[in-house]
Simulated assay, not measured.
Amino acid sequence: MSAPLYQLKAEFFKTLGHPVRIRVLELLGEREHAVAEILPEAGVEAASLSQQLAVLRGANLVTSRREGSHVHYALTSPGIAELLRVARGILSGVLEGRAELLADLRAAGPPRG
């Protein structure tokens, strides 16, 4: 029997649960990148980036192709970039709500007691 869809979704989101993987996917949402282009943007050592790219490849979120001595990566689906855009919109709304709450708390003055 195959895993329920909600379990597969949980695994999918676990794969996204690393800042370097998110950064890589954001970069690849713009266009295909060579590893040498990703490395300075990811802010990690080459070995760590290689490990994170392997996780993304294993989850079939990115594809790779070799061109001479360079390896290039691309998203397997434009839906991945769209998902990250939606997540950004949700987070923006959450953070705006928190900023409003913080402003209200500051306006109320120091706690008494």
Results as ranks from 00 to 15, higher is better:
1 M>T: 15
4 P>H: 05
4 P>T: 10
5 L>C: 11
13 F>W: 12
13 F>K: 08
13 F>M: 14
13 F>L: 14
16 L>N: 08
16 L>K: 02
17 G>M: 04
18 H>T: 07
19 P>E: 10
19 P>T: 11
20 V>T: 11
22 I>K: 07
22 I>L: 12
23 R>S: 02
23 R>E: 08
24 V>P: 00
24 V>T: 04
26 E>M: 10
27 L>I: 03
27 L>H: 03
30 E>F: 06
31 R>M: 02
32 E>K: 04
33 H>P: 02
33 H>Q: 13
35 V>W: 07
35 V>A: 13
36 A>Q: 14
37 E>S: 10
37 E>C: 06
38 I>W: 01
38 I>M: 12
39 L>M: 09
42 A>T: 00
44 V>H: 04
44 V>K: 03
48 S>M: 12
53 L>R: 00
57 R>D: 04
58 G>Q: 07
59 A>P: 01
60 N>G: 10
60 N>Y: 13
61 L>P: 00
61 L>E: 03
64 S>T: 11
64 S>F: 05
64 S>N: 11
65 R>I: 08
66 R>L: 10
68 G>E: 11
68 G>K: 09
70 H>E: 15
71 V>Y: 04
71 V>E: 12
71 V>W: 07
75 L>V: 06
78 P>M: 05
78 P>L: 01
80 I>T: 11
81 A>C: 08
82 E>P: 01
83 L>Y: 05
83 L>C: 02
84 L>P: 03
85 R>G: 01
86 V>R: 12
86 V>Q: 08
88 R>D: 13
89 G>Y: 01
90 I>M: 03
91 L>I: 11
91 L>R: 15
92 S>M: 13
92 S>G: 12
92 S>L: 12
93 G>S: 11
93 G>C: 05
95 L>G: 05
95 L>R: 14
97 G>P: 06
102 L>R: 12
103 A>Y: 08
103 A>F: 07
104 D>M: 12
105 L>G: 03
105 L>P: 00
107 A>L: 06
108 A>N: 06
108 A>W: 03
109 G>M: 04
109 G>L: 07
109 G>Y: 03
112 R>N: 05
